[in-house]
């Protein structure tokens, strides 16, 4: 049990990192990474939503969809669940935990349609995870996203001072450096915990 949790966590954070290995969630990865502060906020919001979405979608899938033989509706239902969940969490935080809302607030609506969040709940089903494993996968997947986006934001902050050719200005240098960071993460691929 413990081994599977550890291997799921390490896999989600390093070897099968959502951004660098599975290419999920690239939009906020490029959009919210110009400053380390915003990247951290976005990362925290993703951890939060991915953990919650994994838990709730697992329950709905196991106790409603599978018994009724409606497993083919998973994608559709999960989108519905995630969208409603994010809206609900946003309202709840705004009223009950204003400090957390001001930290995550603007990023929450942004990840409603994030493919990393949908990806994690679909992968939970695909890998036949139990409840605990699904939640761990959701949270650590979010942590992997956060690691990637914070690392990349630090790189982008450094790039501002770098002297690169003018035609790489803006988005192209950003994509090139994203590729280089992803290459570094390739070093983890092939590792396996048995």
């Amino acid at each position: 049990m413990l081994t599977s949790i550890v291997s799921i966590s390490l896999g989600a954070i390093l070897t099968n990192n959502f951004i660098f290995s599975q290419f999920l969630g690239c939009c906020p990865f490029l959009g919210c990474s110009s400053k380390v502060d915003t990247a951290t906020g976005m990362g925290l919001a993703v951890v939060f939503v991915m953990g919650l979405a994994s838990a709730i979608c697992w329950v709905i899938d196991t106790y409603i969809l599978v018994p009724l033989g409606l497993a083919f509706l998973e994608t559709l239902v999960f989108i519905l669940v995630i969208a409603a969940l994010v809206q609900f969490v946003e309202m709840f935080l705004k009223k009950s935990v204003p400090s957390l809302y001001s930290a995550l607030g603007i990023y929450l609506p942004l990840i409603t349609t994030n493919c990393a969040v949908l990806g994690v709940v679909l992968l939970n089903v695909q890998n036949n995870y139990n409840f605990l494993e699904a939640v761990v996968y959701g949270i650590t997947g979010g942590l992997g996203f956060m690691l990637a986006i914070v690392l990349f934001a630090s790189v982008r902050e450094r790039i501002q001072f770098a002297d690169y050719p003018e035609n790489f200005e803006g988005f192209s240098i950003c994509l090139i450096s994203a590729g280089l960071v992803a290459l570094a993460f390739m070093g983890f691929s092939g590792m396996k915990i048995v």
């Binding site: 709905i60 409603i64 969809l65 009724l68 033989g69 409606l70 509706l73 559709l76 239902v77 519905l80 669940v81 409603a84 809206q87 609900f88 309202m91 709840f92 705004k94 009223k95 009950s96």
Partner: peptide, 26 residues
Amino acid sequence: LSIVVLGVLGALFGAILAFAAKIFHV
């Protein structure tokens, strides 16, 4: 069954959100 399940889920989430908007109104 698909129509019913999706319809019920959708209506349920809609109701929860509408209710939440009232409770958590700022």
